[in-house]
Amino acid sequence: MFTFKSQATDNLVMLQSTAEALLKLVGKSAAEPGIIEVADMPRVLEALRGAPAFVPPPPVNPETNEPIELPFADQPVSLHQRAAPLVRMVEQAQAEGKPIVWGV
Rank of each mutant, 00 (worst) to 15 (best):
M1G: 14
T3E: 13
T3M: 07
K5P: 00
S6T: 10
S6Q: 05
Q7A: 14
Q7M: 06
A8W: 03
A8R: 02
T9M: 05
D10V: 03
D10F: 08
D10S: 10
D10H: 12
D10K: 09
L12G: 10
L12T: 06
V13G: 07
V13C: 11
L15W: 10
Q16P: 05
Q16A: 11
S17V: 13
T18L: 08
A19R: 10
E20R: 11
E20S: 15
A21E: 09
L23N: 06
L23Q: 10
K24A: 15
L25A: 08
V26I: 15
V26P: 03
V26N: 03
G27R: 03
G27H: 11
G27E: 09
K28T: 03
S29D: 14
S29G: 09
S29H: 02
A30M: 10
A31R: 09
A31P: 01
E32S: 15
E32D: 13
E32G: 12
E32H: 14
E32N: 12
P33I: 08
P33G: 03
P33S: 11
G34C: 06
I35M: 14
I35D: 06
I35W: 00
I36A: 05
E37C: 02
V38D: 08
V38W: 01
A39K: 13
A39T: 12
M41S: 04
P42C: 09
R43Q: 11
R43N: 04
L45F: 01
E46Y: 11
E46V: 02
E46A: 14
A47C: 06
A47L: 09
L48P: 06
R49A: 01
R49D: 05
R49M: 09
G50N: 08
P52H: 12
P52M: 03
A53E: 13
F54M: 07
F54E: 11
V55A: 06
V55C: 08
P56R: 12
P56Y: 04
P57D: 06
P57L: 08
P57F: 01
P58L: 08
P59L: 04
P59G: 10
P59D: 07
V60L: 02
N61F: 10
N61Q: 07
N61G: 08
N61C: 09
N61P: 09
P62H: 07
P62M: 04
E63D: 15
T64I: 08
T64P: 03
N65Q: 13
N65Y: 03
N65A: 13
E66N: 11
P67M: 09
I68M: 14
E69A: 15
L70M: 14
L70N: 11
P71K: 11
P71S: 10
P71D: 12
P71I: 09
F72Y: 15
A73M: 11
A73Q: 13
A73V: 14
D74V: 15
D74W: 15
Q75Y: 15
P76F: 07
P76V: 06
S78V: 13
H80K: 13
P85R: 04
V87T: 04
V87I: 14
V87F: 07
M89K: 02
E91S: 04
Q92E: 14
Q92I: 12
A93Q: 01
A93L: 03
A95W: 01
A95L: 09
E96F: 10
G97T: 00
G97N: 04
P99D: 05
P99I: 06
I100D: 01
V101T: 15
W102T: 00
V104A: 14
